[in-house]
């Protein structure tokens, strides 16, 4: 398996950030600034890579099917004086034919605090970036149903993008519920 380390340039004055993986520097930077906004009192923000255990993979396979199975999840967590405030997960879903990069921020009980589209590439469907649409996810947890067009509104002219992001958020929440016990220990 091909692995690599990518050391990013300095993105904020006086702060060294080392990142890796398929997220671009800009995406990491955007999600870190998003966390800063959501948790202005945080005194520590760090990224961890959670590697899925065999048991977690099995559970994911049973709940989600194998079509998006991977080996690890990148989580960026904010804490204050050692207490976890919440964390962000960045992921991509496919729009009509290009990836949509989005970020969800959840509190330690896995309730969505905010959702943001970090990079939108397609020429249609950009309405999913609207605050009024994204705010529908606030407060949702893995226990809530997130059915496109029912629990989360569709958008005329942006059906594919709205659907993809809705299913993406639902999937991430399901994954978080499965990895919750181990992940929260790792984040302590």
């Amino acid at each position: 398996m091909k692995t690599f380390i990518l050391l990013a340039s300095v993105l904020l004055p006086g702060i060294n950030i080392a990142i890796a993986g398929t997220l671009s520097e800009r995406e990491i930077y955007l999600s870190a600034t998003l966390l800063e906004r959501v948790f202005p009192l945080a005194d520590n923000t760090r990224a961890i890579s959670h590697s899925f255990s065999a048991e977690e993979k099995n559970q994911m396979m049973n709940t989600l099917g194998s079509f998006r199975l991977r080996d690890s999840l990148l989580v960026i967590a904010s804490s204050k004086q050692g207490t976890l405030l919440g964390f962000a997960v960045v992921d991509h879903v496919r729009g009509k034919d290009q990836p949509i990069t989005y970020c969800i921020v959840v509190d330690p009980s896995l309730h969505v605090m905010t959702t943001e589209i970090l990079v939108y590439r397609e020429s249609y469907g950009g309405e999913v970036q609207r605050r009024s649409w994204l705010d529908q996810f606030i407060g949702k947890s893995p226990d809530d149903q997130l059915r496109p067009g029912r629990d989360i509104k569709n958008i005329t002219g942006a059906t594919i993008s709205a659907r993809s992001v809705t299913l993406g958020v639902a999937q991430i929440l399901t994954v978080l519920r499965i990895v919750e016990p181990r992940l929260l220990r790792e984040l302590q």
Partner: peptide, 30 residues
């Protein structure tokens, strides 16, 4: 403004493992 320290450890990721849709070259059919 409160100084927020952002410190990321050096992380190792598999290129193929993080996400289905990276910015790498790909073709879609529909």
């Amino acid at each position: 403004m409160k100084f927020v320290r952002i410190m990321f450890g050096v992380l190792l990721f598999a290129v193929s493992s993080h996400s289905l849709f990276s910015q790498s070259e790909h073709t879609t059919v529909g």
